[in-house]
Nucleic acid binder design. Structure first.
Lengths: 346, 346
DNA sequence: CAAATGCATGTTATCGATACCACATCAATA
DNA sequence: TATTGATGTGGTATCGATAACATGCATTTG
C-alpha cells in the first residue's frame, strides 16, 4: 500500500532537483551549485549535471529557491498606463537594465488612480520584490506606510516629490513647462492658451499646468486661457475638442500649449481640419516628444524627456541598493534632463 | 548564548503567519484560512486575525504559499513590443481580465526575435506560471519543446499558426489585408504599392504582405509594387522613406498600403510635406487602427483589429483551462474580428 | 614528512505557507 | 436518547530549493 517509489521515471510530475541529482549521481546541493553562476563545481561534474538537466527537461523552480534564499529576484514597477509610449519607454528602460542582473520585472499600471496604485503595491508586495519603482510622488497614506515598512529600496520617478519616500529619478515638470513658455515668449507669442486637466490624478499634468501659470506671471503676460477636458490621460480627440473650446472663448489666442503631445496632436489636426494655418494662425506645442510629434506635419514643438533613461537610471539605482551593502547613501535625487525641441508648429 | 525567543516583538524581521497566529491566539492554519476567500472561519475569529494582521503590518508571502499549494498564481504573456499600442492594448486586455481572478501577469517583450522569446519563456518558466499567452506562432524548436513539455495551457494570439501548440485566439492577417485590397479595388484603385518588410521576424507582417500579393493576383490587377525598409517594427520615419522610394520607382502608383498605421502615418505626412494631395494624388491605407489613424488629417483608412479583445479572450480561455477540470476541450481556435475602416485617405 | 591549506562535494536544517486529516462542538433528525 | 452531519479549528508533514556547516581528499609548505 506504500506510496510507490517516486524515482520511477514514469512519474508524470515535473522533474525536481532530486531527479536531476539522482540521474547525475550527485547531491541536490551540487546540482544547485552547478546551475548557479559563479559557484565552484568541477567541470566534469557540471557537465554530467547539465546533461541530466537536459535529458529530463528540468527547469529550476525559483519559487522554491527564493523561499530558501530569501531573495525573490523580483523588482516591481508601477506606471500610470502602458498604452502611453512615454511610460512604455520607461518600462523598457527598466527591463533592459534588469536583464543582465537576473532580476525580473513585475509591471503594473494604475490608470492614473492612487487607489489602484495602493492595490497594486499590496498585490506586488505579496511577491516580496527586492525593490520597487513608482511613477510620481502621490500615494495614498496606506501605500506610503506599506512602502516605508517594506524595508526595500523605493525609487519614485518622473517628477520631484515634495516628500520623497526614498530615492528619486526625475525632473521638475513645472520648470520644464515654464521653459517651454519662455521659449515661445521669446519668439513673440503673448496670448497663451493651455490644454490640460487639474485633477489630482495626474500629478505631472498638474505640475505642468502650474509651471505654465507661473511662467506667464513671471513674464508679465496676459493671463493664460486654461481649458481642461475629461480625465487623464487626455486623448488625441479631447485635444481637438479643447482647442475648439479655447478658440471659441478666446479667438485671439496666439499659442496653445498642451499637457502632452497627444492632446497637441489632436489640437493640431483639428485646426488643420478647420482650415487654420499652424503656426501662422495659431501656434501649438506639446510635451513629451512622442514619435508622432516629430513626424506629423507640421512637426510639433515639444519638450523632450528622457523616458528611457528615467527607467534605466531608476533600475540602476535600485540594483545598487539591492546589491550594495544596504548602508547605501539613500535619499539621493537624480535629475534627468529635458529640452525644448522647436519644430514648425510654433 | 541561545538565540533569544523569536516571539519577541522587538525582532526586526518581517512578521510571518506565525506572528499573526500568536497574536490572534489561533493556529497558523486558521490565519491562512482567514486570509483566503471562501474558507470557513467564524466571524469573530476572522476579525481577531484581521486585527492582528493590521497591527503587525503583515503581508502574505505568496512565494511560500505557492510552494505549498503548488499554485503560483502567475500567468506569463509575451508580446513583441510594449511600445506598440496594439500590443499594449492586448496586454491591457489580459491584465484586466486577470484582475478579478487573483492571477498576476508576468509580461515580457521579444523585440520581434524568436531567440529572445525563447530566453523569456525559459526565464518565466522558472516561475512556474499556470498558463502562458504568446504572440504569433513562430517559435524556436527549443521553445516549442519547452511549451509542450510544461503541461500548462498555451494560447497563441494575433494570428492563426499553421501548427498551433494548444489554443489560439486570433485572426488571419492574410485575409484581413486581402479584404483591404479588395475594398480599395472596389473604389477604383488599380495600381497598388505596399510598404512592409519580408523578414521572418515579424510573421504577422509577412502574412499581411502575402495577403496583399495574393489579393492583387486574384483581382487580376497589375503586380503590386513592394518596398521594405529596415527591421520591424517599421517606424513612422521609415514609412515616410518608403513612400518616397515607391513614388520614385513607380510614379504612377495610385494607392499605397502599409503593414501598420505607423508606417502609413509616416507615409501620409511625408506626402503632405511634399505638397501631394491625399487621396487625390495618392491614396494611403494602414493596418491596426491606431489612435493616430483616426485623428490625423486626413484620417487614415485602415483595418481595425480587436487588440484589447484578443487579450481578454486569450486570458479568459487560459483561466478556463487553469480553473477547469483540465480535461477541457483544448485545441480550440477563437477567431477575433476585424473590419476595414474607411477614412479620407482613400 | 607532518601540518596546513584549498577545493569539491555531501548532510542537515530550514525558509513560510498550505494540504490533509483529525477532532471537538453543536444542532438537527430518527 | 442516540445518531448523523455540518462547522470551526488544530497538528503534522510537506512543497523544492538553498544556507551553513562538515567532510574528505589532494596539494602545498616549513
Amino acid at each position: 500500500m506504500a506510496k510507490a517509489a517516486s524515482s520511477r521515471s514514469g512519474e508524470s510530475h515535473a522533474p525536481t532537483m532530486v531527479d536531476v541529482a539522482l540521474r547525475a549521481g550527485v547531491s541536490t546541493m551540487t546540482v544547485s551549485r552547478a546551475l548557479k553562476e559563479g559557484s565552484r563545481v568541477s567541470k566534469a561534474t557540471r557537465e554530467k549535471i547539465l546533461a541530466a538537466v537536459n535529458d529530463l527537461g528540468y527547469v529550476l523552480d525559483q519559487s522554491a529557491g527564493s523561499l530558501s534564499s530569501r531573495k525573490t529576484g523580483f523588482v516591481a514597477a508601477i506606471v500610470p498606463s502602458i498604452n502611453n509610449s512615454n511610460f512604455a519607454d520607461t518600462a523598457r528602460g527598466i527591463t533592459d537594465e534588469l536583464e543582465s542582473t537576473g532580476l525580473q520585472l513585475l509591471l503594473g499600471y494604475t490608470d492614473y488612480t492612487a487607489e489602484k496604485e495602493e492595490r497594486l503595491i499590496e498585490a506586488m508586495f505579496r511577491r516580496r520584490p527586492e525593490g520597487i519603482i513608482l511613477t510620481g510622488g502621490a500615494h495614498t497614506d496606506r501605500a506610503r506606510r506599506l512602502l516605508k515598512g517594506a524595508g526595500i529600496p523605493v525609487v519614485e520617478t518622473w517628477e520631484l516629490p515634495v516628500k520623497p519616500i526614498d530615492q528619486v529619478v526625475g525632473f521638475s515638470n513645472e520648470e520644464a513647462m515654464g521653459l517651454l513658455v519662455k521659449t515661445l515668449a521669446r519668439k513673440g507669442y503673448r496670448k497663451f492658451g493651455y490644454i490640460g486637466g487639474t485633477t489630482s490624478r495626474d500629478t505631472r499634468g498638474s505640475q505642468r499646468r502650474e509651471g505654465f501659470i507661473r511662467a506667464i506671471e513671471e513674464l508679465g503676460l496676459p493671463p493664460g486661457r486654461l481649458v481642461s477636458f475629461g480625465v487623464p490621460p487626455i486623448s488625441i480627440e479631447q485635444g481637438g475638442q479643447a482647442v475648439v473650446s479655447i478658440l471659441e472663448r478666446w479667438p485671439d489666442t496666439e499659442a496653445v500649449l498642451c499637457v502632452s503631445d497627444l492632446s497637441a496632436f489632436g489640437a493640431l489636426m483639428e485646426c488643420k481640419r478647420r482650415g487654420m494655418r499652424v503656426p501662422q494662425d495659431i501656434a501649438i506645442a506639446g510635451f513629451g516628444d512622442y514619435e508622432v510629434a516629430a513626424f506629423c506635419h507640421p512637426g510639433i514643438t515639444t519638450v523632450n524627456v528622457d523616458c528611457y533613461g528615467i527607467g534605466q537610471q531608476a533600475a540602476r539605482r535600485l540594483i545598487q541598493s539591492i546589491r550594495g551593502e544596504e548602508k547605501q547613501r539613500r535619499q539621493e535625487i537624480v535629475l534627468t534632463g529635458y529640452r525644448v525641441v522647436e519644430r514648425e508648429s510654433t
